[in-house]
């Protein structure tokens, strides 16, 4: 294992362990997202065909909006002394970005996986072509994890975490459209390869952006 991946994996491992201990995602963000999924039928009225129709769209919207919270969770934010520690351990900034993004991606994947059956149950959506979703769910987790990590690195000199969602949500529009169109396409048997390609391009673009901006952004305040 090269130094880069060794460092990145050490960060991921550390982030995930911290997260497991604090339970912020599993015991706060996931229930919050599930509660939001429950609110919508209460608000629009119990109309089974309508709920069935909007189910996938609601699921992906909640994933996008609440997924941002996963990327700005406490365990993904370093205090000044932790930042100093990481710098003086000589960690490659790109490895720091990659490690943090990988932890966020793993947590987002869990978030999506737990919320999916909740959405299916509450909205009675027919899970047509679900095996395709096995590709889409990770692609969205990767894109959102990278975008969220990048946005929080950009905004890291601002103490408030409320800015990150405002940066992430508009830029994540293509991801939302791709995810919902793929789900819809599977239902009506339309071609979805173009949308998958769009997700892949977006993920690659964000990975490149995150890696090249890592050093200047992590050193910016100094």
């Amino acid at each position: 294992m090269t130094g880069f991946w060794r460092q990145a994996m050490a960060i991921t491992r550390k982030d995930l362990r911290t997260e497991v201990r604090s339970g912020e995602v599993l015991f706060i963000t996931v229930p919050f997202g599930a509660a939001a999924l429950m609110l919508i039928p209460l608000a629009v009225g119990v109309d089974a065909p309508l709920l069935q129709k909007i189910g996938p769209g609601m699921y992906w919207s909640i994933v996008l909006l609440f997924g941002v919270l996963v990327t700005v969770r406490q365990s993904a934010t370093d205090g000044p002394s932790q930042r100093d520690l990481l710098s003086l351990l000589g960690i490659d900034p790109a490895a720091r970005f990659a490690g943090r993004a990988m932890a966020s991606i793993a947590l987002l994947f869990t978030f999506e996986a737990v919320l999916a059956p909740v959405a299916l149950a509450l909205y009675g959506t027919d899970p047509a072509g679900w095996w395709w979703l096995l590709a889409v769910v990770p692609l969205v987790a990767i894109g959102l994890g990278l975008l969220g990590t990048l946005a929080s690195t950009i905004a890291s000199s601002i103490s408030s975490a409320t800015l990150v969602p405002l940066i992430v949500v508009p830029l994540a529009v293509p991801m939302l459209l791709a995810a919902t169109q793929i789900t819809e396409g599977l239902r009506i048997d339309a071609t979805i390869l173009g949308w998958i390609l769009l997700l892949v391009i977006m993920d690659l673009l964000l990975a490149v952006a995150g890696v090249i901006s890592a050093r200047p952004l992590q050193e910016a305040t100094r």
Binding site: L150, I154, A155, S157, I167, P170, L171, V173, P174, L177, A178, Q181, G194, L198, I201, M202, L205, A209, S213, P216, L217, A220
Partner: peptide, 24 residues
């Protein structure tokens, strides 16, 4: 520094947004 990176990221994403919305 920070806003320059966001400025670039924001604008680079615009073609993707444009394309996806157009497709939509």
């Amino acid at each position: 520094k920070r806003s320059a990176w966001l400025g670039i990221l924001g604008v680079v994403q615009i073609p993707l947004v444009h394309f996806s919305v157009l497709w939509w």
